[in-house]
Design a protein around this nucleic acid. Structure first.
Lengths: 233, 233
DNA sequence: CCAAAAGTGTTCGTACTACACCCATGG
DNA sequence: CCATGGGTGTAGTACGAACACTTTTGG
């Protein structure tokens, strides 16, 4: 490629990623405590720059891998942030996306090497640049998508119980849900397979451990499911 | 801003726009017959490059204004396309969005100056680069969004009838809908105001002309409406 | 007065809501 | 044996789907 367009403006392109996790009680964000400039010591999202010889999607996977040690993470692009002064160092356009991971599966070492910590979404600190806006938008989008599509499972371990799933949805929407109706709604999707095992950690009645019917999950993913019907966007 | 990031790769950033219109019968795309290189003589989307001193959103509005002569057009970002070789001339990352306009309100002069034509969505030609992929994704997103939110109105004139709206939805989803149920569903949203006028163009019974309740439209926009319930994404 | 399009009604079934009851477990 | 949490059942309701009838209009 020797030819070039006759347009002078070439811009630094960044990617920023909101990583959601769920610890069984509340939603968490994987945030970076910056030990580098600019804004050393403050909190930020995990990000990086797009390389010359790199697909955008490959770059997103690279950044997620560096942060979590995981491959094949579920993620969705949210929006590209392109205000002139959003980055005080230099004009930077940032492609922003959110990722959902099983909080127990990620590599502690990878996170530690990035100086990353799980922070409660509700008590999150102010973030640098426009990163707080990105998180707000990501949460909005997560709520939107999780109301219609079975993406919540991405935040849980391979085997999980319906009460665990319900706690996740209650955390996402910050609202209590009816046990019986929730259970019926989830089971009616036929996306769950009874593993025959029970959750041995419980102190009372042990709940059934289910796993996702992966094939049906892939096939039905884009069908509307209405998991949270009284949810107003 | 004298400092710069220590990262060498700065990339040409483009914007590409899928403009949808509705002529009362079918969905149309506003496409460019290229009289410039590369790919002179072939069809493409309307696009442009992001300028140094320009917000991304401002650039999108600029491109839409150049093409249609309209301001305050409804548009949504779809995805940012960043494959290495998507543009044969030079590595270019493109922020892609779709816009909805009233096909009769746009400026013929503006379109003509861009060598733009309304092309039937169904019979659209092959487009350059990855523009056909962009159109496919835009249609998918339009269907997704229009099933849940009242964006369809953006394609109609200020005053319109319910049968017109139905034809629009039938065009979007390429499927017939029941008159009676559709009418009830639309009216139940309370988003329409009876103007008291009738559609004088009709050869038979004249339909009531409605207009959008703009205030309620803004307020309820993000609430789910389920306009097309049997729609599978 | 007739064909075509527009407005309104009715019935049926499904699915959601708001409830109550029973079972399993560990202390 | 009891407190806690998990699984299942049921009645009422609301909404969507599938249907028919009446009204308006121009030719």
């Amino acid at each position: 490629m020797l030819a070039r367009y006759n347009h002078s403006t070439r811009i630094l392109l960044a990617l920023d990623c909101i990583v959601f996790g769920f610890d069984g009680e509340e939603l968490k964000l994987l945030l970076i405590k910056r030990d580098f400039e600019p804004e050393r010591g403050k909190w930020s999202l995990m990000g990086g720059f797009l390389n010359e010889d790199e697909d955008l999607e490959v770059a997103a996977n690279r950044i997620l891998y560096d942060l979590t040690g995981l491959k094949d993470i579920y993620f969705e692009e949210i929006k590209t942030f392109g205000e002139i002064n959003r980055d005080p160092v230099e004009r930077t356009v940032s492609v922003c996306f959110f990722a959902l991971i099983n909080i127990h599966a990620h590599s502690q070492d990878a996170a530690k090497s990035q100086n990353a910590f799980w922070i409660s979404l509700k008590n999150r600190p102010e973030l640098i640049f426009d990163h707080s806006n990105m998180v707000n938008l990501a949460l909005e989008r997560l709520r939107y998508r999780a109301a219609l599509h079975p993406i919540g499972f991405e935040l849980l371990p391979e085997k999980f119980t319906i009460p665990q799933l319900q706690k996740l949805y209650e955390a996402i929407y910050d609202t209590p849900l009816d046990r019986r109706n929730f259970s019926r709604k989830i089971l009616s999707t036929k996306l769950l397979i009874d593993t025959g095992e029970k959750n041995e950690n419980s102190a009372t009645k042990k709940a059934i451990l289910y796993k996702l019917d992966q094939e049906k999950y892939q096939r039905q993913f884009n069908a509307f499911h209405y998991f949270v019907s009284d949810f107003k966007v």
